[in-house]
């Protein structure tokens, strides 16, 4: 009798809970929300773990401009190199480069997407939490959990934390409405596809420029000689990777319009970037010197549209081949 009572309890409870979840999913889909993988340090660690011990590994470092522009799956298919996306949206990558230099097991090729601001010493540790996650918290249990979670997030809007019941209720209580309808679709390999049709591009572009102006007011550029001191540790990290048979290529990613003007005004190319490049200790590719990248539109002045990711990735592969950075690239 008691067991039967519990069976009834559980059957009805499961039906109610699953019905409620399905109802919320349907409601959110009607509001144009779409499923996307939620990025976190576990996904980052999973990507690195997959390629770490492979001598022909290729890792992509940077922030959103790399993460939302280069598709590691396409690169892997085109070059035969196991490729990992380790760029982190909103975080400059030098902590990860330092970590790769210190990781004796890593012997691959590193592409570092960077700009003048990212080389400023005050931003070096931005990705350190991801490195510490790898060093201290990454485990088999986390790997399995992440591998089980990702397919759910690919299929269900409600499988991401912004849509947790308590979050939704708190937002409603605070009068904030439903969570932001994200216009970047992240794939399990951590490449993001920006869909500008899902957002107000004019507003985003305006806000980006306002944010950048504010950034330069809050963080005036250091004098060139102070900024150029970055070359020394960078050269050491690059040498450490090179010593193990690896390689590092720095890539100055495209920006356009007011964004480019603000960058140039604060970090004049001739005083900063070109002086660093002239020292020839760091292999560098600058978008400003690459006509093949010039025709890609940057609707928000900083990121390409997701539709252009395949073409941009192909152009980047060709560029790297052209510069002789991928000697083994022909293997397919």
């Amino acid at each position: 009798m008691r067991a039967r009572g519990w069976l009834t309890t559980w059957v009805f409870a499961l039906l109610i809970a699953l019905g409620g979840a399905a109802g919320l999913e349907t409601y959110l889909r009607r509001l144009d929300y779409v499923p996307t993988v939620q990025d976190d340090p576990d996904l980052w660690a999973l990507a690195y773990e997959r390629v770490r011990l492979k001598p022909d590994a290729l890792v992509l470092l940077g922030a959103s401009r790399i993460q939302f522009a280069l598709d590691p799956v396409m690169i892997e298919q085109a070059t035969g190199r196991p490729t990992a996306m380790l760029a982190v949206n909103g975080h400059y990558p030098l902590a990860t480069l330092r970590f790769l230099a210190e990781d004796e097991a890593f012997r691959g090729l590193v592409v570092v997407g960077i700009d003048s601001r990212g080389l400023n010493a005050k931003h070096w540790d931005m990705q350190q939490p991801w490195v510490e996650h790898w060093n201290n918290r990454w485990s088999l249990a986390r790997r399995i959990n992440r591998q089980l979670t990702t397919p759910l997030q690919e299929q269900w809007v409600i499988a991401r934390s912004p849509f947790a019941l308590a979050n939704l209720l708190r937002r409603l209580a605070a009068g904030w409405g439903l969570p932001f309808n994200d216009y970047v679709i992240l794939r399990p390999e951590r490449v993001g596809y920006v869909d500008y049709r899902r957002t107000d591009i004019t507003a985003i572009r305006r806000q980006r420029i306002l944010d950048l102006e504010q950034y330069y007011r809050d963080h005036p550029p250091p004098p060139p000689e102070a900024w150029l001191k970055v070359a020394e540790p960078l050269a050491q990290w690059v040498a450490a990777i090179k010593q193990r048979g690896g390689k590092v290529v720095f890539f100055r990613e495209p920006v356009s319009g007011e964004h480019l003007e603000l960058d140039e005004r604060n970090y004049p190319r001739a005083e900063y970037w070109d002086v660093l490049a002239a020292r020839q200790i760091l292999p560098m590719i600058d978008f400003r010197d690459q006509p093949a990248l010039a025709h890609f539109a940057l609707p928000d002045t900083s990121h390409i549209d997701g539709i252009d990711v395949p073409a941009f990735t192909q152009a980047f592969i060709a560029l790297m081949r052209g510069h002789g950075h991928w000697p083994g690239a022909a293997r397919q």
Partner: peptide, 16 residues
């Protein structure tokens, strides 16, 4: 049933 359904709903709808 009400208690368990509430708990299950919170668990199912607390991903991340």
């Amino acid at each position: 049933t009400a208690v368990v359904a509430t708990a299950l709903s919170v668990v199912l709808l607390s991903p991340g």
